[in-house]
């Protein structure tokens, strides 16, 4: 049985449904990417799992950790899971730390909570963690406030804080989006190293398949509140099936040989309030047929062990676009 398993998770805000039945398994020690454009529900999925959404959110479905149900669980039980079993770090590191509390104190708070460390012991351990995530001269900087660190350093401190609870699973919600490219690479490196050393599982949320491929074994692609494809990273890159995945791959600059290949997906993400009747991606899909606009494809297991929700998977689509591109070159 998977360590964490999400089944048919649905979330709506003020009557507008934004998650349409997410299903996802995370094994122990596994690193899974969650990819998709802004607004597709990547963050909401995990915020819902940890009951971190505002009270107005309506949540249904199931999230189990080692068989223990989290959806609808009483507050104290969820508090025992947060930070201790599942830790989460966020997109905007600078505003995710309490601005009026010393960073060391914020790390020590986790240490006291999850490992019972107090006083000098907690302080030493906080300094060790800060060193571990690569904060230079942590001994002196442990008493500084968040605004005295750069964005990348704040993210490192967030990671140190998450590690303080020795979680089994770390949810990294776009941890590098707010950072520039070199810092981004450093943080990805750090996350990979930590995962190797601690053996914890990780969910890496991003809109960048390239970043995901750097840290994950497997990835799930989300579109408009649904998972549309999921597979091992290598398989996903070698043979993307969903036209949306193909589009995301085309948008990774590093992978492109010619400029002609670097193209964004046309159109925009649909408003959750006015989702199309059929496949949500149909209006943007060059490959959609009438059928796609009336019926919703289900997420089905494929012969290659991946999962896919598409009536007209790529393959033919891919070769077609390739020939068109070759003409362009």
């Amino acid at each position: 049985m998977a360590f964490v398993s999400i089944r048919d998770l649905k979330v709506s805000f003020d009557g507008v449904q934004v998650l349409h039945g997410i299903g996802l398994d995370i094994g122990r020690g596994e690193a899974v990417g969650l990819v998709g454009e802004s607004g597709c529900g990547k963050s909401v999925t995990w915020l819902a799992a940890l009951s971190l959404l505002p009270a107005k959110a309506r949540i249904s479905g199931s999230v189990r950790i080692d068989g223990q149900e989290l959806i609808g669980a009483p507050g104290p039980e969820i508090e025992k899971v947060r930070g201790a079993r599942i830790a989460m770090i966020f997109q905007d590191p600078s505003s995710s730390l309490n601005p009026v509390q010393r960073v060391g104190k914020q790390i020590m708070e986790s240490l006291r909570l999850h490992r019972g460390l107090k006083g000098a012991m907690a302080r030493t351990e906080a300094i060790r963690l800060m060193n571990m995530v690569g904060i230079p001269s942590a001994e002196t900087r442990v008493d500084l406030y968040p605004h005295e660190f750069s964005g990348g350093q704040c993210q490192r401190i967030m990671i140190a804080m998450a590690l303080a609870g020795q979680p089994d699973l770390l949810i990294a919600d776009e941890p590098t989006t707010a950072l520039d490219a070199t810092i981004q690479a450093q943080i990805l490196d750090l996350l990979s190293t930590i995962r190797r050393e601690t053996g914890m599982a990780m969910v890496f949320i991003s809109h960048d398949l390239g970043a995901v491929s750097a840290v994950c074994d497997r990835a799930a692609v989300m579109y408009a509140g649904k998972i549309v494809e999921s597979n091992e990273i290598t398989a996903l890159f070698a043979a993307p099936r969903h036209p949306y995945t193909v589009g995301l791959l085309d948008a990774i600059p590093e992978l492109d040989v010619t400029r002609a290949r670097l193209q964004p997906i046309k159109g925009t993400v649909p408003d959750p309030k006015y989702l199309p009747t059929g496949c949500a991606f149909a209006p943007r899909c060059t490959h959609a047929t009438d059928f796609c606009t009336t019926d919703q494809p289900e997420l089905k297991r494929q012969p290659d062990s991946g999962l896919l929700a598409c009536f007209h998977p790529a393959g033919r689509y891919k070769t077609e676009t390739l020939t068109r591109r070759e003409e362009l070159v």
Binding site: L52, G75, P76, E79, K80, R82, G83, S96, N98, M158
Partner: peptide
């Protein structure tokens, strides 16, 4: 503010 979500995600009581 995001840091309140951080504090909750840490496992602190409300």
């Amino acid at each position: 503010q995001p840091y309140i979500r951080t504090a909750m995600a840490k496992g602190l009581s409300w």
